[in-house]
């Protein structure tokens, strides 16, 4: 067979990495400055520097908008985006399936159900206001993943794209219907249904940011440390076993980390669909499928994608604010169809 020149830019890895490192703060500042009230970049930077130094900023113009509203919101968007993107990349490698993602598999819906049940039935942890909702979201995300994968393995041990997606859609619909039912009966306690179906980062504060940051460092860190194992799974589970990967342990570790991250994200930002599908796919086109590059770059790409999506949600129909999931779903569905069609063309 004639040799086809390899297209991937392995040599540019460091440059690509630096580019993402540079673009992320640039997008962050853009998203903090732009909104229903436009704040000049210089003022924003000065305010942030003053706040970091501990100076009194209470009298400064835009201070409360920037420090109390925009920054925690944009940081939440970045962290949720990074987490969901990392989860998507991890799942796509683990299952050797480019369409696997928290939303396509129904894991996010399961996490939503857990959170909604916790709120409706008043499941709380003393002294930790978010913990009850968060733990239930994580637990349900993990149970959801186990149910979906057990069903998929039973029906089709090769875990083909069609089987996974079909089961994911059915499971998602089933779980969403229960969520709606619980919300209907406990509507006085639970946020509007769109939060759990379309997500929102409105009103997030620094506590949310800290929790998201902690979850990303711990669970995301574990996923990042499994880059080689995910490479092996992405080539094939049998191949992973043959080269010495402890497939059971790695699979369980990744599933727990993915469930925990999705659970935390959903309990804070609701169900924001397709982030984990779109960004790893785009990233894979740029840096290739090697998880040593794909995972870290997906973190940055996810952060950038969700910060921009949140910005679009805030300004597209200003003063009306769109749920963030509307923006991600619109982009995500187009990408989903694209991957599905190109995948079928390849005979997958």
């Amino acid at each position: 067979m004639a040799q086809i020149p390899h297209k991937r830019k392995e040599g540019l890895y460091v440059l690509e990495y630096l580019a993402f490192l540079a673009v992320t703060p640039a997008v962050f500042f853009l998203c903090v400055c732009v909104g229903s009230v436009k704040v000049p970049l210089g003022d924003t930077v000065r305010l942030i520097l003053d706040a970091i130094r501990g100076s009194d900023i209470s009298g400064i113009k835009f201070a409360s908008i920037i420090v109390s509203v925009r920054i925690p919101r944009v940081l939440s968007a970045a962290l949720v985006g990074a987490s969901l993107s990392l989860c998507g990349a991890g799942m796509q490698g683990l299952l050797k399936n480019p369409l696997a993602d928290g939303s396509t598999l129904g894991v996010s819906s399961a996490a939503s159900l857990g959170a909604v049940i916790a709120i409706a039935f008043g499941i709380t942890v003393p002294f930790l206001p978010f913990a009850g909702t968060m733990i239930m979201a994580i637990l349900f995300a993990f149970l959801g993943l186990l149910i979906i994968l057990s069903l998929a393995y039973k029906l089709d041990s090769s875990l083909s794209t069609n089987t996974i997606i079909l089961i994911g859609v059915i499971f998602s619909m089933f779980v969403s219907s229960i969520t709606s039912l619980v919300i209907t009966f406990a509507s006085d306690k639970i946020k509007h249904i769109t939060f759990w179906t379309m997500g929102s980062l409105q009103g997030n504060n620094y506590t949310h940011v800290l929790i998201l940051c902690g979850a990303l460092v711990i669970f995301g860190g574990v996923i990042l440390l499994h880059a080689r194992e995910l490479n092996a799974f992405a080539v094939g589970e049998d191949n992973a076993r043959n080269i010495g990967v402890n497939v059971r342990r790695v699979r369980l570790t990744i599933l727990i980390c993915v469930s925990a991250l999705i659970g935390v994200c959903v309990s804070i930002g609701g169900t924001i669909a397709f982030v984990g599908l779109v960004t790893p796919h785009m990233t894979r086109i740029i840096v290739g499928p090697n998880h040593k590059k794909l995972l870290p770059v997906s973190v940055f790409a996810g952060a950038i994608f969700l910060m921009l999506s949140d910005l679009a949600a805030r300004i597209l129909l200003n003063p009306l604010e769109l749920p963030i999931g509307v923006v991600t779903s619109m982009i995500g569905s187009v990408v989903f169809i694209y991957i599905f069609i190109t995948g079928r063309r390849k005979g997958k």
Binding site: V235, D238, N239, I243, G244
Partner: peptide, 24 residues
């Protein structure tokens, strides 16, 4: 073990696949 059926889903390079052999 060299299996009978090895189908690829992602565009790993030949070298990346061979490199995985050093995992253990």
């Amino acid at each position: 073990l060299l299996s009978q059926n090895n189908s690829m889903g992602y565009a790993f390079t030949v070298e990346e696949i061979v490199r995985l052999g050093r995992y253990a």
